[in-house]
């Protein structure tokens, strides 16, 4: 095989950077929207209302039970037909990844709500706290704190899954990477570089998850 020539990367560094920025922008938007949806869906899944529980449960199970790629394709190809309007690549990608993020973060919120022990509720009763105060001052703050490490993991997953939008033609890091790789016929150098870029961002975040998890667990250990 031809000797490796990483200098090819220098010629395309601007394009790769643009792709990375698109990836990051997309990821950040979907993190914010997805967490917001996930929070309310998580609450809905623990609610006493059966309809609310049923609908939210179906949404979560469906998005967790199908490949993200098909969700993306569905929204990209089918939603415009149903709505009868055009959707930009970016909008489709945001909708798809937000719904995916909403589904996985709702599970995180639900699990952290359930991890709050019976004794905490007993203490609220013994102190005569009204239901609203119990929820806003005792249950939710602890649930959110407990959720943080897993939420961060969810963000990393989303960052990685975002590479899929290249399959529907959005010019993210993966798309630009494969394009350059095809045009220069240097897949080893280019694809390895793309993989490393993803790695350099995701890896420190996974370390942070472990660190934060320990901090929070120590703090909440009572």
């Amino acid at each position: 095989m031809a000797p490796l020539d990483f200098s090819v990367l220098l010629r395309f560094q601007d394009a790769l950077l643009t792709g990375l920025l698109t990836t990051l922008e997309l990821t950040l938007i979907c993190i914010v929207l997805g967490c917001a949806i996930g929070f309310f869906v998580g609450l809905a899944r623990t609610s006493d209302n059966r309809i609310l529980r049923g609908v939210s449960g179906f949404y979560v199970e469906f998005f967790r039970g199908t490949p993200v790629l098909i969700q993306l394709f569905w929204i990209f190809f089918c939603l415009p037909l149903l709505l009868g309007t055009e959707l930009s690549n970016f909008t489709s990608a945001v909708i798809a990844l937000t719904l995916y993020m909403g589904a996985i973060t709702s599970e995180t919120f639900r699990a952290s709500l359930r991890s709050i022990g019976r004794e905490q509720y007993d203490a609220c009763v013994a102190l005569g706290l009204p239901r609203w105060t119990q929820t806003t001052s005792v249950v939710l703050p602890q649930a959110v704190l407990r959720a943080i490490p897993t939420l961060l993991s969810n963000c990393i997953s989303l960052f990685k899954e975002s590479a899929l939008v290249s399959a529907v033609g959005m010019t993210d890091l993966m798309f630009i990477g494969s394009n350059i790789s095809n045009n220069t016929a240097r897949p080893v150098e280019v694809l390895t570089a793309v993989a490393l870029i993803y790695f350099v961002i995701a890896f420190p975040l996974t370390r942070a998850v472990t660190f934060i998890e320990q901090r929070i667990l120590t703090k909440l250990a009572v």
């Binding site: 007993d122 203490a123 013994a126 102190l127 706290l129 105060t133 001052s137 005792v138 602890q142 009572v222």
Partner: peptide
């Protein structure tokens, strides 16, 4: 509300400091 209770496993609120644990109920109730 005129009865108070202390449990075997403390049941302090771990996300609040000592003072916040004490004043939560008087302020809210």
């Amino acid at each position: 509300r005129s009865i108070g209770m202390v449990f075997q496993h403390y049941t302090l609120f771990p996300h609040l400091n000592v003072l916040q644990n004490l004043i939560l109920a008087p302020c809210k109730v």
